[in-house]
Design a protein around this nucleic acid. Structure first.
Lengths: 139, 139
DNA sequence: TATTTTCATATTGGTAATATAGGAATTGTG
DNA sequence: CACAATTCCTATATTACCAATATGAAAATA
């Protein structure tokens, strides 16, 4: 029941760009130094963010990355879903899962559905902007 | 971000015993047949429940397992914590984790703490009895 | 003693996560 | 143009964990 390193780093990368750019491109080198994560590993992660159009990139000298939208437009849910895949806590709740033959009699299904909803409600309610502003999260 | 098979089966085993016993011992063989999970695998899982005193066991003929307490006294959180270990969504939130050197400056920490609390609130609020009674879970 | 059952540990096979390596393509600058 | 800085792409090594089985001992009862 863990969020992977990939997802955690992706969130940090998005926040780093949000914090350190005003529209200019930020190089991975800078991000890597600030976040103390190897460039090579970050390349893989930001590649996902880039192909998902969460960031825009500029190659060559003075190139780098910037956010595609404003920080308020990214929920943590969207970032983690892109990098980790479906966050459903059990696989039979994933969007593309085949129907479980036990589903109609499954005593535990409602519990898992509730957990799934709880998770996604929470993660979907927090944006990058909230985190940058240290907006208090009421639970 | 998945609950493991071990944890899911442990929950089903606890529910199976709750549903099929009135204080007598229920054999793993019966549980295995109802749940369609191999006895060998269940042995490992119920061993954890037994060593954690969630169930009581009786060896030999007509032996088996029964709950140590009433279904209302087991939250899903307690069962999953026993079988899966700490359910914190990132390892630096685990009870025994060493303090992270980045903690004071970590922008994301409050978000993860909120997620952790949300998860545990939910799982701690549902008992075996609730599940057996198909009590509606409001989210 | 024979049968049924729990109990304990080791081992296997598979799959995913983490991280790095090496080099190709692109772009701005002197 | 040559060069340096940078993104981009694919492959691969390593480790760790998960799921499941294997093997056999120990206990209880009739």
């Amino acid at each position: 029941m863990k969020i992977s390193t990939k997802g955690r780093y992706a969130l940090r990368v998005m926040l780093d760009i949000a914090q350190n750019s005003n529209g200019e491109f930020i190089s991975l080198r800078d991000i890597s130094q600030r976040q103390e994560v190897s460039m090579k590993y970050l390349e893989m992660i930001i590649g996902i963010l880039n192909r998902g159009n969460f960031v825009q990139s500029q190659r060559g000298k003075d190139g780098g990355y910037r956010l595609a939208k404003s920080p308020a437009d990214y929920t943590v849910l969207s970032i983690l879903t892109l990098t980790e895949g479906d966050l459903a806590p059990i696989s039979c709740l994933e969007d593309l899962a085949p129907e479980c033959p036990r589903a109609t009699d499954c005593l535990t299904l409602p519990f898992w559905q509730g957990l799934n909803k709880t998770l996604k409600n929470y993660m979907g309610s927090v944006t990058l902007e909230d985190i940058l502003n240290k907006k208090t999260i009421e639970v």
